[in-house]
């Protein structure tokens, strides 16, 4: 399928969905409005709200806060994940000792941590960053761990036969392999950084996209909720596009994007 056909089909899906939403909320069928606008708003209202936010400029501050929180969560979580993943993979004893605790912490739904973080770190950005870090860390950690563990034995034997010492093995074999696994999970980890930020804001904050949505919900402003969701969706797609660019640049040596472990 050509790019143009694909793109037109993708647009078609959006058009059909929005048209259906518009018809069902504004045109009475047999005297009954199937989706009452009070509960479902209308595309025109939502669109109007989004435009209003951008015209007034009030949205920029919220977007910026969410972006900063997500970026911080991503960077801190990734650095910690790479370091500890590497350490565990090279020290099987440490990995074995901590294994049940890592699994326990990973199995914990991170949402329950949000109030604790708010308590510890206040309602500012750092409680949201902390929530994002707990999500990003495990994705990166598991991928790096796997990347170091799953270096091809042949490549490793070859490296040794070519005269590499431990330090050089680290630099030329383990490190690139671990990083490639981490990069292959970039989409997931960046996505989770945003999720952490927004959920954190939703549960208690004074700014950010999650805060807007939460505020609108509080006053039954359905148009505001949907508008917040649309801005969030566009924001995530934009970030994802940037990640794709970065990935293409960094994983130029890869035949196809490898599967991602989450």
């Amino acid at each position: 399928m050509s790019r143009v056909t694909l793109l037109s089909l993708q647009v078609l899906v959006a058009v059909v969905a929005i048209a259906a939403w518009h018809v069902l909320t504004t045109v009475p069928i047999l005297g009954v409005t199937v989706l009452p606008p009070f509960f479902f708003s209308t595309p025109a209202d939502v669109f109007g709200r989004v435009v209003q936010w951008f015209v007034e400029g009030s949205i920029w501050r919220h977007l910026w806060i969410t972006l900063v929180e997500a970026m911080l969560a991503f960077v801190i979580g990734s650095v910690a994940g790479v370091l500890i993943g590497f350490w565990f993979a090279r020290q099987p004893l440490i990995a074995a000792v901590f294994d049940p605790y890592v699994k326990m912490m990973n199995a914990l739904p991170r949402v329950v941590l949000a109030p604790i973080f708010a308590l510890w770190l206040g309602l500012g950005i750092w409680s949201k960053v902390a929530l994002g870090v707990t999500l990003v860390f495990f994705i990166v950690f598991f991928n790096v761990y796997q990347g170091v563990k799953e270096v091809s034995p042949t490549v490793l034997a070859n490296a040794r036969m070519l005269g590499m010492n431990e330090r050089q093995l680290m630099r030329h074999v383990y490190w690139p392999s671990a990083l490639s696994w981490m990069f292959s999970s970039l989409h997931t980890s960046v996505g989770f950084a945003v999720v952490g930020a927004v959920v954190g804001e939703y549960l208690g904050s004074a700014a950010g996209l999650g805060y807007i949505i939460q505020q609108a919900e509080g006053v039954f402003d359905v148009a505001g909720v949907f508008a917040g969701m649309f801005v969030l969706a566009a924001f995530v797609i934009l970030i994802d596009a940037v990640v794709s660019l970065v990935e293409k640049r960094l994983l130029v040596w890869r035949p196809v994007a490898a599967e991602t472990r989450t």
Partner: peptide, 18 residues
């Protein structure tokens, strides 16, 4: 390890990231 030897492997042994 035999430091005097070069080894050509049967399986893929090149560094894929280089």
């Amino acid at each position: 390890l035999n430091r005097q030897a070069g080894y050509l492997f049967q399986a893929e042994a090149l560094f894929p990231w280089k």
